[in-house]
């Protein structure tokens, strides 16, 4: 086996009533990002550069919930977070509370490469970005009209429920039991986290995840995306990026556990992904993508739909939303 492989996601938990043209737009964007990654891999870029490149593209496009197009806080502002990990040496970088850096994933990369730390947040992260001349924009740049509308709907939907795990039976559409994720009707929750996992032709794995977080989140809320072992993880065996209900992903240390069951239980990549989706999510809804050092790709989710696309060196390519 061997060869490069790439998998990308634009979030798990999709409104089954998402208009056909939005679905088409999502698929086109995922295909575009895959092709970007594929050509980088063909030019022998290392996995860590490829995941950064692909996630930058997703951040720059307003379609998904990261960079421009990020979900809004309760105050109507944007607070973004991201993390990146190189399985080769298990180096990692993460940022939270980013409000004016155009590409948070590249700031996370900079934290990994140029700071003595692994994780910087809020004004300290912004100051670090300025010091390194990263491209900065006004917070307004990230805010889209669509998301202003979504925030209004989220507030009307009685804000974030106290415990989203209790109420509803999801995965099973139907008008009577509307699907809820993160305490919000799925139609409001729509914009979603992005991520990418890559193994290059030398067998090096990397993963990157970026998000605006939850619609109507409290100021200062940190989710799973920047947390190494939760939203993002890579080691010499695999690279993993997760998406969905952040709190369930954190409790389940989801990304690390894919690697842990491969390492400690000897499971294969897809088995490992299936195992954590089934056993590690308590009542939470989430999805994840993964690659192994041998060039396999895998994904899994326990909610309605996940925007994802994957490709391998032997010519396999797939872009999908539903099961």
């Amino acid at each position: 086996m061997g060869g490069w492989a790439i998998v990308v996601h634009g979030g798990a938990g999709v409104d089954p009533n998402l208009p056909a043209e939005r679905q088409e737009e999502a698929k086109q964007l995922l295909t575009h990002c895959l092709n970007l990654g594929i050509s980088a891999l063909r030019s022998s870029l290392p996995a860590i550069d490829v995941v950064e490149l692909v996630v930058r593209e997703l951040e720059t496009n307003p379609f998904f919930n990261s960079g421009r197009g990020s979900a809004l806080t309760e105050k109507g502002t944007v607070e973004m977070e991201a993390s990146i990990m190189d399985g080769n040496g298990r180096r990692c970088g993460a940022v939270s509370g980013v409000t004016s850096v155009k590409n948070p994933i590249s700031l996370a990369r900079l934290v990994m490469d140029k700071s003595p730390h692994s994780y910087l947040a809020f004004s300290g992260a912004e100051a670090f970005a300025k010091k390194h001349d990263m491209e900065m924009v006004d917070n307004e740049y990230f805010i889209t009209e669509d998301n202003k509308g979504m925030l209004k709907q989220a507030k009307e939907a009685n804000t974030i429920l106290f415990d989203y795990r209790v109420p509803l039976d999801s995965c099973g559409a139907g008008v009577e039991s509307p699907i809820v994720m993160n305490g919000l009707p799925i139609s409001v929750y729509a914009p979603e986290t992005v991520g990418c996992a890559v193994v290059d032709s030398q067998g090096r794995c990397a993963a990157a995840t970026s998000t605006g977080g939850l619609m109507n989140k409290m100021m200062g809320r940190i989710g799973d995306s920047p947390l190494i072992g939760a939203g993002t993880y890579a080691c010499d065996l695999c690279g993993v990026s997760c998406t969905g209900e952040g709190e369930a992903i954190i409790r389940g240390t989801l990304a690390r556990d894919v690697a842990a069951v491969m390492e400690y239980k000897g499971l294969g990549l897809q088995e490992a992904v299936d195992f954590v989706v089934k056993e590690r999510l308590d009542e939470g809804k989430a999805g994840l993508i993964a690659v192994s050092k041998t060039g396999e790709v895998a994904y899994g989710f326990n909610c309605v739909g996940m925007f994802r696309g994957c490709a391998t060196e032997d010519g396999f390519m797939e872009v999908g939303i539903w099961e």
């Binding site: 989140k217 409290m218 100021m219 200062g220 809320r221 409790r251």
Partner: peptide, 12 residues
């Protein structure tokens, strides 16, 4: 409904 709050939001 969250697990983790940081900086100004946590102080508030």
């Amino acid at each position: 409904p969250h697990i983790y709050l940081g900086f100004d939001g946590a102080e508030a």
